[in-house]
Every structure is written in C-alpha cells, then in structure tokens.
Amino acid sequence: MDVFMKGLSKAKEGVVAAAEKTKQGVAEAAGKTKEGVLYVGSKTKEGVVHGVATVAEKTKEQVTNVGGAVVTGVTAVAQKTVEGAGSIAAATGFVKKDQLGKNEEGAPQEGILEDMPVDPDNEAYEMPSEEGYQDYEPEA
C-alpha cells in the first residue's frame, strides 16, 4: 500500500510541476504579447503594419512553449490582441483601416495563427491545408 501511495504522490508532483510550467509559459506569452502591443503603439504610420505582424510573430513563438489545451486559448487571445492593436492603430490615425491585415508588401496577414497546427491532446499534428499553395516548377 505504501508503494501505491508513494507512486500516487510522485504522479501528483509531476502534474503540479507540469501545471506550473504551463502557467509560466502562458505568463511569458502574455508578456511578449504586451511587449508587441507597446511596440505597435510606438510606431509611426509606416511601421504600424509591420508592428502588428511582430506582435503576432512574438506571440506565436511563445505559444510553442505552452502545451496542451492552453495553446488553443493563448492563440485565440493573441489573435484578438493583434486585431485590437490594429483597431487602436486605425482609431489613433497611425494607419488607414484599409491597410490593416496586410503586410508591407500588401499581402493579407489573416491566418497567421489560424494555420498553425495545434492539437490540445498532444496526440497528432496535421499540416495546414494546401489550398493556398501553388506547385513550383523550376525553369529549365
């Protein structure tokens, strides 16, 4: 019985440690998101679009440190934060509304985080759909 109880105690310690790591990862992701939003706020009209992409990228980098179902929630929060940063930029006159959601080359930025393969159960990952990809044929 002692062996059984000791095993359960060790398992509990492992769960607590994993929860603490997840909590730490979420806190880091939130900190990076805040950094990115402050970065966007300090940019001029020309830099705002690039700044919004930076927020998304920093958040995406930190999301990889967070495991399990938390990833889905962090990704949703990050996307809403990026959308909010863009709205703030438009409201303050840093950028025109028609410039939001495009990178410096004018290509749409939507789907940055949505296409990231995420499995809350950590069982399997699927690649994003290939609808947006084109076949590449090298020139002879």
Rank of each mutant, 00 (worst) to 15 (best):
D135T: 05
G73M: 06
G86N: 02
K96V: 07
H50A: 08
G25E: 06
V16P: 01
D119E: 14
G14Q: 08
E57Q: 04
E137Y: 05
E57C: 12
E28V: 14
A107P: 15
Y136S: 04
E57M: 13
V66E: 00
Q62H: 13
M5P: 00
S129L: 10
A17I: 07
F4T: 09
A85Q: 09
E126T: 06
P117Q: 11
M116E: 07
T64D: 10
P120H: 12
G31T: 15
G101Y: 00
N65W: 02
G86A: 14
V40R: 02
V55S: 02
M1N: 01
T44G: 06
K80F: 02
D2G: 00
G47Y: 12
H50D: 15
H50L: 03
E35W: 04
V37E: 00
K21Y: 14
E123M: 02
V52T: 07
I112Y: 04
P138F: 08
G93I: 05
G7L: 01
K12L: 11
G68K: 08
V74G: 01
L38T: 15
G36N: 09
A76N: 10
S42Y: 05
E35A: 15
V15L: 13
A124K: 06
V52F: 04
K21W: 09
P117F: 14
S9Y: 15
T59N: 01
I88D: 03
T81Q: 04
K97S: 00
P128W: 08
K32M: 02
A30I: 13
G41A: 04
E28G: 05
A19Q: 07
G7Y: 02
P128R: 07
Q79D: 01
L8M: 02
G73Q: 12
V63S: 02
L100I: 04
E83I: 14
E61C: 06
V15K: 00
V77F: 11
V95C: 03
Y125H: 13
G111F: 12
G67I: 06
K34F: 09
G67F: 03
D135L: 06
D2I: 01
G101T: 03
T44P: 00
V55Y: 15
E61G: 14
V71M: 10
V70S: 10
A56Q: 05
K32R: 12
N65I: 09
G7Q: 12
K10E: 05
E126C: 07
D121H: 07
V52K: 04
V3H: 06
H50R: 12
Q62S: 02
G47E: 10
D98Q: 07
V66Q: 01
V3E: 01
E20W: 11
Q62C: 12
V77S: 01
G111Q: 04
Q134N: 10
E13A: 05
E123L: 13
A107L: 05
E126W: 07
A30G: 02
E105Y: 10
V26P: 00
G132Y: 08
N65L: 11
V15G: 09
G73P: 03
A11W: 13
V66Y: 12
K45L: 11
K10Y: 11
E130N: 08
T72P: 06
D135C: 07
V37L: 06
G41T: 15
G51Y: 05
M127A: 05
V49R: 08
A85E: 02
V118K: 11
E126Y: 06
F94V: 04
V37S: 12
Y39D: 01
Q24G: 06
L100W: 03
Q24Y: 15
L113A: 10
V55G: 06
T64P: 03
K21E: 01
K34T: 15
Y125W: 06
A85K: 02
A29V: 13
M5I: 00
L38G: 06
S87T: 07
Q24I: 12
E105H: 04
T54K: 08
E104N: 14
H50I: 11
E83P: 12
G36F: 03
G84E: 04
A30C: 08
P120I: 15
E110Q: 04
S9F: 07
F94L: 04
V63L: 04
K23R: 15
E139P: 13
S87N: 04
E131Y: 15
G51Q: 10
G41E: 05
K96S: 13
K10W: 01
Y125T: 10
N65T: 02
E114Q: 15
V95T: 15
K6L: 02
Q109D: 06
S9C: 09
E13D: 08
E35T: 12
T22V: 14
L113Y: 12
G132T: 06
K32Q: 11
A29K: 06
P120G: 05
A69W: 14
A53S: 12
P120F: 10
V26S: 04
L100Y: 02
E61F: 05
S87K: 05
A53N: 11
G132P: 03
G14C: 09
A107N: 10
K23L: 03
E123V: 14
F4V: 01
A78K: 10
A11R: 01
M1F: 14
E20C: 10
K43P: 00
Q79G: 03
K97H: 09
P117H: 09
K12M: 15
K10H: 05
P108G: 12
G93C: 04
S9E: 13
T75M: 15
K80H: 06
G25S: 10
I88V: 06
T54H: 01
G31I: 13
G73H: 11
A89C: 11
E123I: 13
D119G: 03
K96R: 06
M1D: 00
M5R: 04
E137D: 08
E137K: 03
T54Q: 02
T64C: 05
A27P: 00
D121G: 08
Y133G: 04
E61P: 02
P138D: 14
Y125A: 09
P120D: 04
G68L: 10
A19D: 01
K102V: 13
Y136A: 04
M116V: 00
V37Q: 00
A56F: 14
M116D: 09
E114C: 05
E137P: 03
P117K: 12
E110D: 12
V37H: 00
Q134T: 02
N103S: 06
P128G: 09
E131T: 10
E139H: 12
A91M: 12
G41R: 08
K43Y: 12
G73W: 08
P128V: 02
D98N: 15
K32P: 00
E131W: 02
D121P: 12
Q109F: 03
G84R: 13
G106D: 11
K21P: 00
E28D: 08
T33M: 10
E126F: 13
G41Y: 15
G25L: 10
E46T: 15
M116R: 05
A56R: 05
E20T: 11
T81I: 12
K10A: 06
V26N: 00
K58E: 01
K96M: 09
T59V: 04
Q109R: 11
T44Y: 14
K12I: 00
T33W: 03
G84W: 08
F94K: 15
V82G: 01
V74M: 15
G106W: 11
K6M: 05
V15T: 02
Q109V: 14
K96F: 07
T92Y: 09
P120Q: 09
T22R: 02
V52S: 06
E114Y: 13
E57R: 10
D98C: 05
E131G: 09
A53M: 01
A78P: 02
Y125I: 09
T44W: 15
K80C: 04
E28T: 13
G93A: 14
